[in-house]
């Protein structure tokens, strides 16, 4: 066996226990960020398409700020911001920061999906006597959700990968651990190759699950 493969398998065997635990942390942070981001996303999307100028302005401000600054800055900012007010673990600070960040992108996904639903759907709902919020909840949003699923899936995969950035506030997820391993073992190349594979496997699993879900939706509809 060539040397590189030998070292790689050595690194792998020595680190897999730690990396599996760290992968769990990565998944947890990602899951929390996705849930938070989706909630924020829906709320801000509805604000953005609302008739209230104030709500629109707040939503636009949020989206502009988040999309106009680097995630790593937002993580640091929120970490020091939040922990100066309440006691919060760096895990939760990181998850919240990632959630807030994603909310801005998910808001745009939902806004597009809602506005993409045929106008006739809203008119038919109103003509039947529904008010605006009934039309949104019962008729428009369920259709928008279907349209939103492929771009949401993309965003979730980005979230998974972006979660690596919370290492800067000291969370031991995959990348954080890899950083330490690389330094202590003096094998940075091999270590980062291994951690890259963990991410790749997670992303492939995510993608597969999303495909399954999309197919299920398509089958239901017909």
């Amino acid at each position: 066996m060539p040397d590189i493969l030998l070292t790689l398998s050595e690194v792998f065997m020595r680190t897999y226990e730690g990396f599996l635990k760290a992968a769990l942390v990565t998944l947890k942070i990602t899951a929390i960020a996705i849930v938070l981001g989706t909630v924020f996303g829906i709320v801000f999307a509805l604000m953005k398409i609302s008739r209230s100028k104030i709500l629109q302005t707040i939503a636009n401000l949020y989206i502009t700020l988040i999309r106009g600054t680097p995630l790593i800055v937002q993580i640091m900012f929120l970490y020091y911001g939040i922990t100066s007010i309440v006691v919060l673990s760096n895990f939760w600070a990181g998850a919240i920061a990632l959630g807030v960040h994603n909310g801005a992108y998910i808001a745009e996904v939902f806004r597009g999906a809602i506005q993409g639903v045929d106008r006739g759907q809203r008119e038919a709902s109103l003509a039947l006597g529904m008010n605006r919020s009934q039309a949104m909840r019962r008729i428009i949003f369920p259709q928008a959700l279907r349209r939103a699923i492929p771009p949401l899936g993309n965003q979730f995969i980005i979230t998974l990968k972006d979660s690596s950035l919370v290492y800067v506030i000291g969370v031991t997820e995959l990348f954080g651990l890899a950083n330490r391993e690389a330094a202590s073992s003096f094998l940075p190349f091999e270590t980062f190759l291994v951690v890259g594979m963990y991410y790749l496997v997670l992303v492939l699993i995510f993608t597969g699950l999303l495909k399954l879900y999309e197919n299920k939706l398509n089958v239901d509809k017909s």
Binding site: D118, G120, Q121, E123, A124, A127, I139, P142, R146
Partner: peptide
């Protein structure tokens, strides 16, 4: 009643 029906597809 509309020209394009506007039934709820879901």
């Amino acid at each position: 009643v509309f020209q394009h029906f506007n039934l709820f597809p879901h």
